[in-house]
């Protein structure tokens, strides 16, 4: 009797110890084909230049051999509604290039709309063209500070 009680106690303790989900458990279930997308942009861009901007598609670390349908959208600041649509030109190395002249200094957004098979990717990259004036920088830093305070005010429960 005593042995039975002790054995079941041990078993219970074992079961009480919280099991947690295995990070690799997803392998047991349906998985989607993964295509990674990168918008490659030079470290600095000058106004009135045509920088080399490429979209690279990879799958399992290798360049994707399938041809994708790639379109770029470019806009400045918050003027997304006036974005220009520019079709990509396919390069021999498999990348997709954006040919665009940035007309002035400032903050631009480049969105690549990529469709390959039934996969639809739409990364957007924010770019700084030229230099920001000291005044602009201060204004931005102030905004960031405000955002930080707001974040710490509203996200502390996470």
């Amino acid at each position: 009797m005593r042995r039975l009680v002790i054995t079941s106690l041990l078993l219970m303790l074992f079961l009480l110890a919280a099991c947690s989900a295995d990070p690799d458990a997803a392998a047991h279930y349906s998985q989607r084909k993964e295509v990674n997308v990168n918008i490659e942009v030079p470290d600095s861009i000058e106004a009135n230049s045509v920088p080399r901007i490429d979209v690279l598609l990879t799958s399992d670390g290798k360049a994707l051999d399938k041809e994708a349908d790639v379109t770029f959208l470019v806009w400045k600041d918050d003027n997304k509604a006036e974005a220009e649509t520019i079709p990509a030109s396919r390069k021999e190395d498999g990348g997709y290039q954006l040919e665009y002249t940035f007309p002035s200094e400032g903050v631009y957004y480049v969105k690549a709309d990529v469709i390959v098979d039934n996969i639809h990717l739409m990364p957007t990259k924010q770019l700084r063209v030229g230099e920001l004036t000291e005044e602009e920088k201060q204004k931005i830093l102030q905004e960031q500070e405000q955002r930080k305070q707001k974040d710490s005010g509203s996200h502390h429960h996470h």
Binding site: D43, P123, Q126, L127, K137, I140, Q144, R147
Partner: peptide
């Protein structure tokens, strides 16, 4: 936020 130190970053969808 607009990049001050880095010149490029991905934006959220």
């Amino acid at each position: 936020p607009v990049p001050v130190s880095a010149n490029q970053q991905y934006a959220q969808l």
